[in-house]
Amino acid sequence: MELLCPAGNLPALKTAIDNGADAVYIGLKDDTNARHFAGLNFNDGKLAKGADYVHQRGKKLHVAINTFAHADGEARWKKAVDNAVAIGTDALIIADLGVLDYAATKYPDIERHVSVQASTTNLEAIKFFKNNFDVQRVVLPRVLSVQQVRQLAKTSPVPLEVFAFGSLCIMAEGRCYLSSYMTGESPNTVGACSPAKYVRWQETEQGLESRLNNVLIDRYQADENAGYPTLCKGRFDVDGDVYHALEEPTSLNTLELIPELMAMGIVSVKIEGRQRSPAYVEQVAKTWRMALDRCKQNPDNFSVDGAWMQTLANLSEGSQTTLGAYHRKWQ
């Protein structure tokens, strides 16, 4: 089972490889990828350097081209595919059917992975991608329970990758327009959810307020930790009850599922966080490398080390982690 780590820049990429990643995934410096943030991602020169660093160490590089091509800008997404192939990417992570079609036709020998943004949650949808674009891997959205993942792994004609750790997107990825409803910009169209330019913090008499495009997302008392106002993780009012109506600020952590995921034949576990620092990548890669190696040596007696959990919790939103949808009770 491959450990696939995120890298938002060259230092993070090197850190990931140096700390045990089998592969890293990156994005280009434009809106063709779902972490299109200022100061993040790879221009052509950095892309080539990154590829060299990864390949010289016998590891793999995946390039995410996983937003949806604009009606008047399809050429940009095709060029992104061309550029990634030119620097020798090992795999393309794609969500858009048109872009997949282009990649499959023009570069049939370069691996195509169905991005989580394509929201592929069942066998027939996997068949669709296999039949039409001969994809080599499907990344599952964070909406399936462990039982459902197991069932799918048994029957899928395509190897599966799952999310293992990081920020928890609670909606079926690629099918969430909450961000554009509030700001006009969404992961699908601009490659960012709850974009930073719409965020405003304000100290008020009632507490510290976070807003997204002027909508109040949360309000914190002095003893509360304030988090980034991702719109689905704020406190809202439903008929007089004020609570985290959609989700709390928390991160996904599936360390305890490692033996099960291995037994199912999941080919890769993905760490979220291309927007995070090299320090984050270092801690997460190191911890997950240890856990995977320990499990491989002795899968029957695998147990999660308390220190690993502590390390990962410290890197998590609101310092708490969850099994998310993998655990039925969360749903």
């Binding site: 964070r142 909406v143 399936l144 329970s145 609670i170 909606m171 079926a172 099918r175 969430c176 327009y177 909450l178 409803y181 439903v238 008929d239 009850d241 109506a245 959609l246 989700e247 998310g324 949808a325 039925r328 009770k329 969360w330 749903q331």
Partner: peptide, 18 residues
């Protein structure tokens, strides 16, 4: 606008989806 594994109506009544 969005779809989730979680049922938000059940959550609003403090119940799990199952």
């Amino acid at each position: 606008l969005a779809y989730s594994a979680r049922c938000f109506t059940a959550r609003s009544e403090d119940r799990p989806k199952d």
